[in-house]
């Protein structure tokens, strides 16, 4: 696969105080560090997304520490209470230090 690509699903609008469901998915092999290369017999080095976080208007809503037992293409589903319009910012941190980010706006109806 090409560079890891995040997908997020956030409702476009919510009523004030509503608890919404957020779904996220990112393409990533989550190489566990426990697998051997079939040809060489050497362990394939670990390379996983080790941290995920979701902020709303700069405040952390939900975060997660991930271990190698999380499946490839990690999926996260969680909730957020929306009191005002604003922007959700999603961040995934890779073992190699790369950071993948995306944002979604929400309005209050």
């Amino acid at each position: 696969m090409a560079a890891p690509k995040p997908r997020v699903k956030v409702p476009k609008k919510a009523s004030q105080g509503e608890v919404i469901t957020i779904k996220t998915l990112i393409s990533h092999p989550m190489e566990s560090g426990q697998r051997k290369d079939k040809k060489t017999g050497e362990l394939i080095p670990r390379k996983i997304i080790n941290k995920f976080s979701c902020e709303f208007n700069g405040q952390v809503v939900f975060s997660c520490d991930l271990d190698p037992a999380v499946s490839a293409n990690p999926y996260m589903e969680f909730n957020a209470k929306v009191n005002e319009p604003g922007t959700f910012k999603f961040t995934w941190v890779d073992d190699d230090g790369s950071v993948y980010e995306t944002e979604k706006k929400i309005t209050i109806e």
């Binding site: 696969m1 997908r7 490839a72 293409n73 999926y75």
Partner: peptide, 15 residues
Amino acid sequence: SFQNPGMLYVERGEE
């Protein structure tokens, strides 16, 4: 379609 991890590859294919 959101939870289906195959959709990541559909998006890549579109690119």
